[in-house]
């Protein structure tokens, strides 16, 4: 699926740029007449590739910090303790993961960090959870049911405090910068419920089940 989305983004993106360059009437004020849009697109391609590396390298310090802290938590038995407490919920969401597996604790910590809007802590904890989930993976390179469920919870996660949104609204002079929070929490709760239901239903489809075999 990611293959098709990737292809579509590239074909449509470049196709539109070509189309716009051909159909656009010449602008005498512009520095470069043709192909102006393709020039911007070109810059976009190079810029995005650089941004990707900057983003990834920027993660190193935070990753090291949280993976270090997590290792202490793990050896102290905190992760197992957390997994035990939330067992009634997590064993239903992730039936393939043993209840006291370190993956459970890491997933719970990642979801909590996301809810609090602590993006810096959430990503390393989430990647730690993926690493643990991958230890249970019988077919490396293919996503397990638990990974899919975890990612859907992650991408539709309930965020209690959306700090950047509040900041932009304050800067724009809003009379009530936080008034959107209630609606946002309800909307994201709905999307999480629908997402988890969908991921569970799709996992039952023979098409997706077959990909786990062999």
């Amino acid at each position: 699926m990611l293959n098709y989305i990737w292809l579509a983004l590239i074909i449509i993106g470049i196709g539109v740029a070509v189309g716009k360059d051909i159909t656009q009437p010449p602008d005498p004020a512009a520095e470069q007449q043709f192909p102006a849009i393709m020039k911007v697109t070109n810059e976009g391609i190079i810029g995005s590739a650089k941004t990707a590396v900057t983003l990834a390298l920027g993660l190193i310090g935070i990753m090291a910090l949280w993976l270090g802290v997590m290792k202490i938590a793990e050896q102290a038995g905190l992760i197992t303790l957390l997994a035990k407490v939330l067992k009634p919920i997590t064993s239903r969401l992730f039936p393939d993961v043993p209840a006291e597996h370190p993956a459970m604790g890491a997933m719970i910590m990642n979801i909590s960090a996301n809810m609090l809007g602590l993006a810096n802590a959430a990503t390393p904890l989430g990647l730690k959870a993926m690493e643990e989930l991958n230890k249970l993976n019988k077919k490396l390179g293919t996503a397990t049911d638990a990974m899919c469920t975890f990612l859907v919870i992650n991408t539709s996660n309930v965020q209690l405090v959306a700090a950047p949104v509040i900041a932009i609204r304050v800067a724009a002079g809003s009379a009530n910068p936080t008034e959107f929070l209630g609606a946002a929490i309800v909307a994201t709760t709905i999307s999480t419920i629908v997402g988890v239901t969908t991921v569970k239903l799709l996992a039952k489809l023979p098409f997706y089940k077959k990909q786990l075999e062999g």
């Binding site: 990611l2 989305i5 293919t142 990612l151 859907v152 539709s156």
Partner: peptide
């Protein structure tokens, strides 16, 4: 191979 994670997401 991301299976059903993308459509569900």
């Amino acid at each position: 191979k991301t299976r059903h994670a993308v459509p569900a997401g």
